[in-house]
Design a protein around this nucleic acid. Structure first.
Lengths: 234, 234
DNA sequence: ACCTGAACACCGTTCAAGT
DNA sequence: ACCTGAACACCGTTCAAGT
């Protein structure tokens, strides 16, 4: 009877007699709605409509909207590929993992609004954590350092992808031509000539922004991995 | 007449004749409300009430709620201390900066929900970027590497602090005793014994969680800095 | 130039009532 | 056991009207 953390993962789900709706069905519809219309596009009423039921039906399967988001959130972590570290070696395993994580996050941009809001306690998130820990243990980290290495890596990926998501959603809103973007940058950054020059250069001379972003991601990833190796040696 | 990015920073603000309200007053009230009641606690009506005016008055000073958030967002970046790199040397400058950034973010936890949602285009954010770039240039980075180094560092701080924010808000919700937290962890992580053991150990044997988190932050920061130095040498 | 209130089209959630 | 609709207390935003 003690008080629990309020999370879907801390409750027993309703004993499912498999009659009408199911949690999986609801989560699937939630993900659909999130992927197509974004976080603001998800409402209990719309979700109900998509399920061919009243909005309030959902409350039978889930305590509230936040629990629904927890479910969807964890589902995303399940999509990330994490190779078996024993085969590939830790550095390649982590590299593959990090790129996969980035790709999955960019595919579900609404995740960006959840990372700072709810801890990842679901089975997929934990299993990801578990395998990452195994990978770092295999690399030679011990005790708390395993968790620190883990935290550092995930932090890098989170922190890189989140602003990337923000930028993408911003730019995709209206269709912007080069001209008007340049205008905006010039107004906004007029006091920072170095910054302005770089931004304009990158935006106009670089044809493939996506590749640039991936290169930048790889740079940072290599940085983090080198740093981790340095910690292993000391 | 071309289309602009829709951002407060891309518009000319209304010519202020300094009569009634002012943008600064409104932003101050917004920050108050955000700091005390969080992102969900901010509504145009409440804000209006706090300003002693109708909710719709705010729309004279600001196009919409998102612009208000952009204003508040940028204000936070202005609170971060960034030492002059020429005095301290780049490594100490960045270390001081990173810790200050973390502290400021933890003080305004609602920032966690904005980083994945709107790019930082305000003057404070840009000035921060500008000084960080200067610091990394001083360290010896050149060309695009300056921006990559910058992005890597900021990513690490963002990515560390955001889950930290999520955890704090989660745990502070209800007052949880050790007992019930342990119960929750055991239920949630029953399939991951290693993880579970570590979490319980940290939560029960470590008296000062804050210090642990800072230690972990410092570990990752040193990792990133070592990695950056490795890139400088090659 | 600045402020207002009413109105519109939404929200999440509760709850008594239905089957 | 599952589902419903009405109702409550909110939202952001528009707009005609006021000073």
């Amino acid at each position: 009877m003690s008080k629990q953390i309020s999370s879907v993962w801390a409750r027993e789900p309703r004993p499912t007699r498999t009659p009408g709706r199911s949690r999986e069905e609801i989560v699937r519809a939630t993900l659909d709605l999130l992927d197509t219309e974004g976080l603001d596009g998800l409402s209990m009423r719309k979700l109900g409509a998509r399920l061919g039921s009243g909005a309030t039906t959902i409350y039978w399967y889930v305590e509230n909207k936040d629990e629904l988001l927890e479910l969807a959130y964890d589902h995303v972590w399940g999509e990330i590929a994490l190779p078996v570290p024993e085969d590939l070696g830790w550095r390649d395993t982590i590299t593959t993992f990090a790129h996969s994580m980035r790709r999955v996050m960019l595919f579900h941009p609404w995740i960006g609004s959840l990372i700072g809001r709810m801890p990842a306690l679901g089975p997929n998130a934990l299993s990801m954590s578990d395998r990452l820990r195994r990978t770092f243990a295999l690399a030679g980290f011990e005790g708390l350092d395993i968790d620190c290495a883990n935290a550092t890596l995930t932090a890098y990926v989170f922190g890189t992808v989140m602003p990337e998501i923000a930028w993408r959603s911003y730019l995709s809103g209206e269709q912007l031509d080069q001209e008007s973007m340049r205008e905006t940058f010039e107004k906004v950054a007029k006091d920072f000539p170095d910054l302005l020059e770089r931004v304009i250069e990158v935006n106009e001379k670089v044809s493939d922004t996506d590749t640039l972003r991936e290169t930048s991601f790889a740079f940072g990833l290599a940085t983090v991995l080198d740093g981790l190796e340095a910690r292993l040696r000391s």
